[in-house]
Computed example of a mutant assay.
Amino acid sequence: MESESMEYRYLGRSGLKVSVLSFGNMTSGWGDGTEQWNFECVDKCIRRGVNFFDTAEFYGLGIAETVLGRNFKQGGYDRDDLIITTKLAPSGFGIQGLSRKRIRQAIDHSLERMQLDYVDVLYLHRFDPEVPLEESIRIINEIIESDKAFYWGTSAFTPQQISECFAICEKHGWIPPIVEQCEYHMFERGIVERDYVPLFDQYGLGTTVWSPMCGGLLSGRYNDGNIPAGRLESSPFTALFRQWYDKHIGSRKEAAIKTLTGLKALADELGCSQAQLALSWVIKNPDVSTAIMGASASHHLDDNLGAVDVMKKLTPEVLARIEDLLGNRPAPSMHWRTFTPNPPRR
């Protein structure tokens, strides 16, 4: 069911309309009480118009899928109103990678864990260099033909790998991918704003972007350049967060503090939170189909959902001020007939 307070966009060149904000349960299943907490998040999202829910077999090695499936059963929601996706990984589930054998088994296991007959989108969760891409795409198409999935996509594939997917599908008359799931936020821009642009233009590729607030670094809680006490404790994602922090703040602390405090001042002027500003900036990009949210506290989720309204305040003048603060607009590609830079994508 659509909500007037939510914006919806088509996912690539498909007929799927997805909420511009979506919910991912990557952190579900890592401790006691997470199932009820996840249900509260799912229920709140659905009541606010979110219809896109993302998970993966790798999250909690299947536990996150189980939790999400139980959440849907608990809420008794209309399956037709929901867009549910999962991702199959090349590692962590034995030696078979993304082979025909493993994908055939994996989709059945995922559907069983989620208590579903089908998923709307099935992703290849990273490129598998040890399995011919043609083999993986062939079985994905068979899964779609058997109605266990309706569409498929890639996650963290390079532009060259995605182009190869389209070439293989064109050669064999197979269903091509409609979406790429990639990292995109104020600190990480090149792949969406430069590298994938030919794919957007040629194939109408959609994007379901993850970590739109860079693991929370853009939320306002790190504006002094330091990591709050306890942030690196008892988390399976400590290494990933530390990598983000070292790259975007730790290695350039003085400049990062200036950028973050500048964003906070601008958010105050707009009457929103810094987290809402960062998230609304992501979904302002028309090449973003949906931004996948996470939450560690209820009020964080409430705040994130308000980003749709804040997006309306991002006038060209405000966007220009953000560019001045970030100072990291990707160098545009060249128009080789005129030898002039192509205009910025945003």
Rank of each mutant, 00 (worst) to 15 (best):
G206K: 03
E193F: 04
R9E: 00
L61V: 08
T290A: 14
G190I: 09
L98Q: 09
F39R: 10
F127E: 01
L325S: 07
V288K: 06
S163Q: 13
L111E: 06
A320K: 12
V119N: 07
V121K: 04
T86F: 02
P132V: 03
V282L: 10
A275L: 15
G306R: 09
D287M: 12
L61T: 07
D324V: 13
Q161N: 01
S22N: 03
F58T: 05
H185T: 10
L205Y: 03
R242K: 14
T66M: 05
L305T: 02
T34P: 03
G12V: 00
R329G: 03
S22H: 03
R70E: 03
R346F: 13
G31T: 14
L124F: 00
V209C: 04
S146T: 09
M6V: 12
S3L: 00
K87S: 00
Q243T: 14
T207S: 00
V209F: 02
L325F: 11
G173E: 14
K148T: 08
A275Y: 14
D108Q: 09
T66W: 06
A275N: 15
L199Q: 02
L232P: 11
I63S: 04
R70I: 00
L11C: 09
M114Q: 03
T154Y: 07
R189Y: 02
F241C: 04
K258Y: 07
T86Q: 01
L82D: 06
S280L: 05
P332R: 05
L314M: 04
R337E: 15
Q36W: 14
Q181A: 08
L11P: 06
Q74R: 14
L232Q: 14
V192A: 01
D201K: 14
V197P: 06
S235Y: 12
I103G: 09
K253L: 10
R70T: 01
Y59M: 06
Y151V: 08
M334A: 10
A239G: 13
T66Q: 09
S136C: 03
F53Q: 00
F39W: 11
S91F: 10
G215M: 13
P177V: 01
M334I: 14
Y222A: 12
E254V: 13
I292A: 02
R242N: 13
L217Y: 05
R138Q: 13
R194V: 11
R47P: 08
V42C: 06
I144N: 09
S110Q: 05
K312N: 10
N342A: 14
G250C: 11
S235N: 15
L88P: 01
K313R: 07
E142P: 11
S234L: 12
K264L: 11
M311T: 11
P330T: 00
L263G: 05
G262D: 01
L217D: 06
V131A: 02
S251E: 09
D32S: 15
L260Y: 10
C182E: 10
H109C: 09
V20S: 07
D246P: 12
A56W: 01
I162T: 13
Q202G: 03
R252H: 10
F53E: 00
K101A: 08
D268F: 02
T66L: 06
N25T: 07
A149N: 03
C165A: 05
R345T: 12
G230L: 05
S211D: 12
S14L: 02
N51W: 09
T158M: 13
R79C: 00
G60F: 07
W37S: 15
